[in-house]
Amino acid sequence: MQLYNTLSAKERAALIEEAGKERLTLSFYQYAHIGNPEILRNHLFITWDKLDVLGRIYVAKEGINAQLSVPAENFEAFKEHLDSISFLNGVRLNIAVEQDNKSFLKLKVKVRHKIVADGLDDHTFDVTDKGVHVDAEGFNKLLDDPNTVLVDMRNHYESEIGHFKGAITPDVDTFRESLPIIEDDLKAHKEDKNLVMYCTGGIRCEKASAYFKHKGFKKVFQLEGGIIEYTRQVENKDLENKFIGKNFVFDERRAERISEDIIANCHQCGKPCDTHINCANEGCHLLFIQCEECAEKMNHCCSEDCKDIVALPYEEQKSLRKGKKASNKIFKKGRSSVLKFKS
């Protein structure tokens, strides 16, 4: 029984182009108590592979986190399958603001210890005991309340290119780093302030809302559906958009433009820019912000060393990176010392 991909990303991209069919990029999550994640993982892979679903899905004992694309013609069958699973019946689906048929090129369903790594080892903490969900209209009203503290639960490289006006944007690399920082900074306001949180699609601030309730915060709110759903509601209901810049997304698109504001800068020259790229040197692959001029000058690389490497024959490049891992550098996400403006 096939429980893994048989095609490479390049082969899959060619098939998608050849098929010429529209695909929908979407995401969803659900916290729940899952007894055997491995069984659910296998069931999802077998069923979704038949529907030509592609994406990155994590399953754990605390729930599921899915970012994927599905052929538009198979969407109803996909939704029917979700509704057949008790804890996913009626789950909210966040449809991407900007669509791209090649947002995902493989189907990866993995079992993880947690769907959002939090660094916590507290068995009295119930992730399903969440804060109050608010829609875009309710969120805007809370932001107009002077008694509200707004916190971005995303990482620094996400909030750098876009965030809500007036939000606290912790300078962190991971979600787990943000929890103790926020708790310490706001501990004097556990009783009196509205603690309002947001993230990309809702999954991180939902866990955070449950955590801060567990820590004694009394007025805890989260933006339902995150920035993705907020943008949709703002457009559909003609509401004021309080988000500036781009929303960072974790697929081939890297970001969705929400407003015309450019609030970030090229990490190499400092020019206003909010376009993330990965260094063209596959042995580096660093994520950083690069303007068109620097991209041309640096051949889409983060440094002169990487530029020299990508100029070499491909086989020589492979030989240079053999046995080396770039993951630690990748997750610096723009903090590398080679980026003159950022550093």
Rank of each mutant, 00 (worst) to 15 (best):
M1Q: 13
K10A: 14
R12H: 06
R12L: 07
I16K: 05
K21Y: 04
A32H: 07
G35Q: 10
W48Y: 09
D52E: 09
V59L: 02
A60L: 00
E62T: 07
A66E: 08
A72R: 12
F75S: 02
L88P: 05
N94E: 14
E98I: 12
S103P: 04
L105E: 11
R112V: 11
K114S: 13
F125C: 08
D129W: 07
K130V: 15
V134T: 04
E137Y: 08
G138I: 01
L142Q: 04
S159Q: 05
S159T: 11
E160A: 12
I161S: 04
I161E: 07
I161F: 00
H163P: 01
G166K: 06
V172H: 08
F175P: 05
L179A: 07
E183W: 09
K187P: 01
E191Y: 08
D192E: 07
T200A: 02
Y211F: 14
F212R: 06
F217L: 07
V220C: 01
E224G: 12
Y230R: 05
T231A: 13
Q233Y: 11
K237T: 03
F250Q: 04
F250C: 02
R253H: 03
E260W: 05
K271Q: 15
P272A: 03
D274H: 09
D274E: 05
N278W: 05
C279K: 08
F288C: 07
I289N: 04
C306W: 12
K307R: 15
K318R: 14
K318N: 12
G323T: 07
N328Q: 14
I330N: 06
K332L: 14
S337K: 15
L339W: 10
K340V: 13
F341A: 11
F341R: 09
K342R: 15
S343K: 14
S343W: 10
